[in-house]
Design a protein around this nucleic acid. Structure first.
Lengths: 244, 244
DNA sequence: CTTTTCCTGCTTGTATGCAAGATTTACATA
DNA sequence: TATGTAAATCTTGCATACAAGCAGGAAAAG
């Protein structure tokens, strides 16, 4: 996380630094990404920053508001559902298409689940968020298809942003149990069941979101001032949350 | 294809012009894409061209060879198999997850299959290539998930490049029959069957490829000189499908 | 005739400069 | 005090300039 600009492949480093920041829940949705600041931070000119932003934009992780700035995406409720739907399709297809589980793969998953348990015991929510996403990337890696791994990584990044926006309370235990069930089915070689479980799991997680929370961009402010939900004065300027 | 640079959104136009060129099989794999040429062609500076190339690179459609140039990707045999595997996962997941087929959807697909038949009758291979890919994009569109549509579009682009490299003879009739079978299952509401059929279909198409053809980049040359397959002198440079 | 070396032209890589729009601040005014 | 307006200050958008590396050919050497 420190020597990310090692004079070599600097643009790719900017890109990956931001992705990893999102994947580890260190960068919040709506965060402003100033070209100038990133440029000085990485010791390069705006050009390289710009190119990294372009790439991240096609990956659905950042967004540009013309002449205003670059921002980490803040998925709407609708987009959130789209992301989960896409994940259901891909992950169930992934699991159902699996032939078998190697010993190596079994070890990797078991170790991962242990990590989840440890993080849960430690109550490290950020680490948990990260791990919960990683589980699904691991499965894609097990499948051995680099294209699907890339797709899953980007979808996971968006999922984490979604959970930061809409997840009021963290049902970590429930998610962990879901992962364990999927792993158990895989270990038994029952990939059809594993696929079904993955769909159920994603449904559970999606249901756990409060997708009405951010529908009103003033909700946090209103909440923190304990105002009623209905009286919406025409306060002109936008609150902190960006939206295109 | 002509008024693609209408003074507005010029960078997106460059990107989409190239994607649509690939999707319609008008741009061959390995085609060189000179920043300067594209810049003058679209009446912009290299900067915008470059940004479009960056985006296309993350979409897996072009590739840069450092200080040598940008080229439309030439998927290796291994990459080709990866693309087909990814498509099997996504498309089967897509179909299996479908609830039902609207009358609208039924019409769209039926019309598409008619187009395929017409193109087959006319013997228009380029149009057929395009249509065969489009069928799968249509299915994704029917599912209504924009993320999956985007993914499928990019995978289809790569698939078309693959078929231009490795498809010695075009089993159009076979593919068409496959599409018809998938549609029939969907029309009956049997999406599980449709998913199975899509996997079979993709298997068939992949089997129809000659994935050893381009494994050796000199194969065409060797073949046309009727040299034995084994004596491989270390001639370095790529076979060079250049295009200006 | 073959091999090596150098040189010229062409490619991308990166930084920088300027223009144009958006936002905020300052300020005059009712 | 509230409010509308203008200027100052940010931001990105795009073009251009120059650096650096690769490729191919010409010329020199063997």
């Amino acid at each position: 996380m420190q020597d990310l600009h090692t004079e070599q492949n600097r643009q790719a480093n900017i890109e990956e630094a931001i992705v990893s920041g999102v994947l580890s829940a260190r960068i919040r949705p709506g965060t402003r990404l100033s070209e100038n600041q990133l440029a000085t931070l990485f010791g390069v000119s705006r050009t390289l920053v710009r190119e990294a932003m372009m790439r991240l934009e096609t990956r659905g992780i950042v967004q540009v508001s013309p002449r205003r700035g670059w921002f980490v995406v803040e998925p709407s409720a609708e987009e959130a559902m789209t992301v989960y739907a896409a994940r259901r399709v891909i992950e169930s297809g992934l699991l159902r298409g699996m032939r078998g589980l190697t010993d190596e793969g079994r070890k990797v998953l078991a170790a991962h689940l242990d990590e989840e348990k440890a993080a849960m015991a430690a109550g490290d929510r950020r680490r948990l968020t990260c791990l919960m996403g990683d589980f699904h990337i691991r499965i894609a890696e097990l499948h051995g298809n680099p294209i699907l791994v890339e797709i899953m990584r980007d979808l996971t990044a968006r999922t984490i942003l979604i959970s930061m926006l809409y997840q009021s309370e963290f049902h970590a235990a429930q998610s962990h149990r879901g992962h364990c069930r999927i792993f158990a089915a895989m270990a038994k070689g029952d990939f059809v069941r594993a696929a079904e479980l993955s769909i159920e799991h994603l449904d559970e997680v999606e249901t756990g979101l409060d997708l009405t929370a951010r529908a009103d961009p003033l909700s946090d402010l209103r909440l923190s001032l304990s105002l009623p939900a209905d009286t919406a004065p025409k306060t002109s300027r936008r609150s902190g949350a960006r939206k295109t």
